[in-house]
Amino acid sequence: MSPVLSAKSLSKHFDGVVAAEAVTIAVAAGERVGLIGSNGAGKTTFVNLITGYLKPDAGAIELDGRDVTALGPREIERLGVARSFQIPQLCAEMNVLDNILVAAACGGEALSFWQPAHTAQTRERALALLERFALGAHAERRVAELPGGIRKLLDIAMSLTRRPRLLLLDEPTSGVSVEEKFPMMETVMAAIAGETHSEGTAVLFVEHDMEIVTRYASRVVAFYSGRVLADGAPATVLADADVRRHVTGGQI
């Protein structure tokens, strides 16, 4: 079986800064991959490359064995890849429900000129998704008025409207207090399981908290200055001497 995602020696430099260098990662359906690495290690760049926002200087990206290196975010989304953002990307003036409706409409076949965005059916589906994220109570609230944690969850919920085959979460728990991190991750993972594909959505999540990584990842990839430092089972990677020196700094 070919992997859902196969990144082959991706490189990306910004004016001499190495953001990715020969990054090779394959992800199979249903895998839960934790991406770790200090700030500036190239985790977001990797997500940007996979989703077509950035073009690699060298290397190739395949989805289900198909070369998608030249495609943009929209085409890649259409192939079943969704992402959330380190800084939530929402429509702040709209309410929570409308944000979900926007996401659902964008992912649909063709945008209708006359079919109402709000129908009993679209609302019901959107509310069900919001419930999975425990956001039902905020449905009618304007996004700009909501706290960061809620926005973070909404950002992730929007990326799930189309039941992606590959989901990339860029620091889903950043900006959230330590006590809230676990419940939040619990909610997100349960919601993903609820919206999942039969063969299982592959999830890549960027995370700084090693306890969360060990709890939710079946595999860990450690980045250091654009390179993959280690890739394997959580226990193995976190015990790696290089990872301890450059990434976790002796944590755990």
Binding site: Q89, E93, A103, A105, G107, L111
Partner: peptide
């Protein structure tokens, strides 16, 4: 009015606020 209330109409409002996200959600 029908257009404003349509899914395309709603996505127009979303573009006004966050084009990047709309592209990432799969609409042109």
């Amino acid at each position: 009015r029908i257009y404003f209330d349509s899914s395309r109409g709603l996505v127009s409002l979303a573009i006004r606020e966050n084009e990047l996200r709309v592209e990432y959600l799969g609409a042109s």
